[in-house]
Amino acid sequence: TYYTVKSGDTLNKIAAQYGVSVANLRSWSGISGDLIFVGQKLIVKKG
Score class of each variant (00 low, 15 high):
16 A>I: 11
13 K>D: 11
6 K>C: 06
36 I>R: 00
43 I>W: 12
21 S>G: 05
16 A>S: 11
25 L>E: 00
6 K>V: 11
2 Y>A: 08
29 S>V: 05
11 L>D: 00
45 K>H: 14
21 S>A: 07
13 K>A: 13
5 V>S: 02
44 V>W: 04
4 T>S: 07
17 Q>R: 12
35 L>W: 11
46 K>E: 13
44 V>L: 09
29 S>F: 04
30 G>C: 11
14 I>Q: 00
11 L>W: 07
17 Q>K: 13
43 I>K: 09
9 D>Q: 01
38 V>E: 11
29 S>D: 02
4 T>E: 10
40 Q>S: 04
27 S>C: 12
18 Y>M: 10
9 D>W: 03
24 N>Q: 15
12 N>T: 15
10 T>A: 04
19 G>W: 05
35 L>I: 14
3 Y>D: 02
22 V>H: 03
24 N>W: 08
16 A>F: 11
10 T>N: 07
41 K>R: 13
19 G>S: 09
45 K>C: 12
2 Y>L: 10
3 Y>F: 03
42 L>E: 00
32 S>M: 11
17 Q>F: 12
24 N>S: 11
20 V>Q: 06
29 S>E: 02
9 D>V: 01
34 D>W: 10
46 K>T: 13
29 S>M: 04
33 G>A: 08
28 W>K: 02
27 S>M: 14
12 N>Y: 14
22 V>K: 07
10 T>E: 05
37 F>I: 10
22 V>S: 06
46 K>M: 15
25 L>V: 10
35 L>M: 13
32 S>A: 11
23 A>P: 09
12 N>K: 14
25 L>F: 03
39 G>N: 06
21 S>Q: 06
23 A>K: 10
10 T>Y: 03
28 W>N: 05
2 Y>M: 11
13 K>F: 10
27 S>K: 14
31 I>M: 09
11 L>C: 04
30 G>K: 09
42 L>K: 01
46 K>N: 14
41 K>S: 09
9 D>M: 02
6 K>N: 07
35 L>F: 13
41 K>F: 08
41 K>Y: 07
17 Q>V: 12
38 V>I: 11
6 K>E: 09
39 G>R: 02
44 V>N: 01
4 T>H: 08
47 G>S: 13
9 D>H: 02
42 L>I: 12
32 S>T: 15
47 G>K: 10
1 T>R: 12
1 T>P: 10
32 S>D: 13
41 K>E: 10
36 I>C: 05
34 D>R: 06
11 L>H: 02
17 Q>L: 14
36 I>S: 01
7 S>E: 15
1 T>Q: 13
21 S>L: 08
34 D>H: 09
26 R>H: 06
1 T>H: 13
16 A>R: 11
2 Y>P: 07
38 V>Q: 08
22 V>L: 09
30 G>R: 07
7 S>G: 09
17 Q>Y: 12
23 A>V: 10
13 K>T: 15
13 K>N: 11
20 V>Y: 03
19 G>E: 09
42 L>A: 01
15 A>C: 06
12 N>S: 15
30 G>Q: 11
14 I>E: 00
10 T>P: 00
10 T>G: 02
3 Y>A: 03
40 Q>F: 06
47 G>V: 13
43 I>S: 07
40 Q>C: 06
46 K>F: 14
29 S>R: 01
13 K>C: 09
15 A>Y: 02
39 G>L: 03
34 D>T: 08
3 Y>Q: 02
16 A>K: 12
31 I>K: 02
10 T>D: 08
26 R>G: 04
8 G>R: 03
17 Q>P: 00
18 Y>C: 07
10 T>C: 06
35 L>T: 14
11 L>S: 01
28 W>L: 06
35 L>S: 14
18 Y>K: 04
39 G>C: 05
19 G>F: 07
25 L>Q: 00
7 S>V: 15
15 A>R: 00
26 R>S: 08
15 A>M: 02
6 K>M: 10
34 D>P: 07
28 W>S: 05
38 V>W: 04
37 F>K: 09
13 K>W: 10
20 V>H: 03
20 V>P: 00
26 R>L: 12
21 S>P: 07
10 T>Q: 05
8 G>D: 06
2 Y>F: 12
37 F>C: 15
29 S>Q: 06
13 K>R: 10
47 G>T: 13
33 G>C: 08
26 R>W: 05
40 Q>Y: 03
33 G>T: 10
3 Y>G: 01
4 T>K: 07
6 K>F: 04
34 D>G: 08
28 W>C: 05
25 L>Y: 00
42 L>R: 00
36 I>Q: 02
46 K>R: 11
6 K>G: 07
7 S>N: 12
3 Y>N: 01
25 L>D: 01
7 S>K: 14
35 L>D: 15
12 N>P: 14
4 T>R: 08
3 Y>P: 01
9 D>N: 02
26 R>C: 13
31 I>T: 05
47 G>W: 12
23 A>M: 09
8 G>T: 05
3 Y>I: 08
16 A>W: 10
42 L>W: 01
21 S>E: 08
22 V>Q: 05
1 T>W: 15
46 K>A: 14
4 T>F: 12
18 Y>P: 00
43 I>R: 09
45 K>P: 09
25 L>C: 04
34 D>M: 09
36 I>H: 01
29 S>I: 05
17 Q>I: 13
45 K>G: 12
42 L>G: 00
41 K>V: 15
23 A>Q: 13
12 N>F: 14
10 T>M: 03
6 K>P: 01
17 Q>N: 10
14 I>G: 00
22 V>D: 04
14 I>D: 00
2 Y>R: 07
43 I>G: 03
35 L>C: 11
15 A>E: 01
31 I>A: 04
22 V>N: 03
27 S>D: 15
27 S>E: 15
31 I>R: 00
35 L>Q: 14
41 K>Q: 14
20 V>G: 01
35 L>G: 11
33 G>P: 03
15 A>H: 01
6 K>A: 09
17 Q>G: 07
40 Q>E: 06
8 G>I: 03
33 G>L: 08
18 Y>H: 12
44 V>F: 06
28 W>G: 03
19 G>N: 12
9 D>P: 01
21 S>D: 08
44 V>E: 01
27 S>P: 01
47 G>Q: 13
47 G>M: 12
31 I>E: 03
23 A>I: 10
5 V>M: 02
16 A>Y: 10
46 K>W: 15
25 L>K: 00
18 Y>T: 08
13 K>M: 12
29 S>Y: 03
47 G>C: 11
9 D>L: 02
12 N>A: 15
28 W>E: 05
26 R>A: 09
46 K>Q: 14
44 V>Y: 04
15 A>P: 00
39 G>Q: 03
16 A>L: 13
13 K>I: 10
46 K>H: 13
24 N>E: 15
35 L>P: 08
